[in-house]
């Protein structure tokens, strides 16, 4: 079997006790990049190389992973500066994009606070999840709707919560609007609820006021990095923006609301 040599330049936190969840962008104060020379085989993905580094050089190198098949969204990282799942990034593709004699760089997601090495604190996402108003449909158990209606929301339900979209979104990454902005993942979630054929809840005021959908200026960075292939911008965010516009700025809808006709 074909074996090749590669240098991985991986972010490592300083050893010893550190304050929990410092920010990785102050890189030099919390850690440094370390080089590891490893062999890799045909068909390997970046996560395999990280596991090999753990087995051969650094048992304590921290990284999150579960399924190694692109289904759980645990091994999110920045490989050569790009947000991706380590388990779905093939070494053959990485070597093609890495300039000769340069190392492959692996960093934790820069948008979230650091815990250790490649592991970040994504507890924000779990707090945000609690703010979602659940589906509100008929009381009976046997729900009927057709596949066309299901298709529209099933796209959104393919989200594996890897948070790569949030990590890439400049509203979060550059402006740190963690408190005022729900981020792409949760607009996808909202879209899934709002477009559910049997749901009767209205989340539009919350989407406008609490979740700050207006901050998104449709740069589509989130859609580009989504490993589940969800068309986040066009199918989730833009339709939600349109619903906000209809609800708040459409004069006919405003009059209708004033005289008590709902949507």
């Amino acid at each position: 079997m074909m074996k090749k040599q590669v240098t991985f330049r991986v972010f490592r936190s300083h050893t010893g006790e550190r304050p929990y969840a410092s920010h990785p962008r102050t890189e030099s104060s919390v850690g440094k990049m370390s080089d590891y020379e490893v062999e890799y085989d045909e068909g390997m993905v970046v996560l395999d190389v990280i596991h090999r580094i753990q087995a051969e050089h650094a048992p304590d190198l921290a990284c999150r992973w579960n399924c190694k098949a692109g289904k759980c969204g645990s091994c999110s990282a920045e490989v050569n500066g790009k947000s991706r799942l380590m388990c779905m990034t093939r070494m053959s593709d990485i070597m093609e994009e890495t300039p000769e004699n340069e190392p492959v760089t692996v960093r934790p997601m820069q948008g979230f606070p650091l815990i250790r090495d490649l592991v970040t604190d994504v507890s924000w996402a779990y707090e945000m999840n609690k703010k979602m108003v659940p589906v509100n449909g008929p009381d009976k158990l046997d729900w009927e709707f057709n596949q066309n209606e299901a298709d529209r929301i099933q796209e959104f339900r393919q989200c594996i919560e890897c948070m790569l979209c949030v990590n890439t979104c400049h509203v979060i990454r550059e402006h740190e609007k963690f408190d005022d902005f729900a981020g792409p993942r949760f607009f996808v979630r909202m879209a899934g609820l709002e477009m559910h054929p049997l749901d009767t809840e209205s989340r539009i005021p919350q989407i406008k006021e609490d979740f700050g959908i207006g901050y998104c200026n449709i740069t589509r960075c989130c859609t580009e990095v989504c490993p589940a292939g969800i068309n986040i911008t066009d199918n989730a965010i833009i339709p939600l923006k349109e619903r906000v516009v209809t609800e708040y700025y459409d004069p006919i809808a405003m009059i209708a609301r004033k005289i008590g006709i709902k949507r």
Binding site: T15, E17, R18, Q54, P59, D60, A62, I115, D117, V119
Partner: peptide
């Protein structure tokens, strides 16, 4: 395994 108590896969 070596290393510390925080997020140490070897431990």
């Amino acid at each position: 395994p070596g290393g510390g108590v925080i997020y140490n896969p070897g431990w």
